[in-house]
Amino acid sequence: MSNQIDKDNFEPKIVAFLCHWCSYKAADLAGTSRLAYPTNVRTIRTMCSGSVDPVYIIKALLDGADGVLVGGCVLGDCHYQSGNYKARRKMIILHAQLRALGIDEDRVWLRWISASDGVMFRDVIFEMVEALKAKGPNPMKNPWDIWKSAKGGWKPKTINSPRGE
């Protein structure tokens, strides 16, 4: 049906939270090494994978991201000793919660990408784009589209932080 056609032309949108010390540097290295990969990914720099609040991930999914990548240092190599282990624990809980809500948890990936591994960063993006293309668009995307203004006329909204900032 039309679903099939959608999938063919579908370009997933990926939000990537990359830790400052390793995976962000890996993405930098992919750049300096000119390792081309699909444009589908948008990166956000965080200090540590352990500081990625699950709320950010859920927010990204609700706002229309088809997939979320969290990149941290290789286990054992965390700049903050154990932040990536904390990220892993959070991810397990988040996956369980998404599953309970009927949301496809495989849209949220956690990968350990060392600062020297630009190649891995590129490969992960290729893999993820392929996997998300197979899944099709994030079903939560549409209901939230009403928040979005006309094309090109994106406006910032007053953000009601769940944390009351």
Partner: peptide, 26 residues
């Protein structure tokens, strides 16, 4: 990222900053 009541914020990487970035990208 752990504080359940949102009492702790990470300066320069706080919720508003991050969430607005997420919103713009997603």
């Amino acid at each position: 990222a752990t504080c359940p009541s949102g009492a702790i914020s990470h300066k320069h990487f706080n919720f508003k900053e991050l969430l607005s970035e997420v919103e713009a990208l997603a």
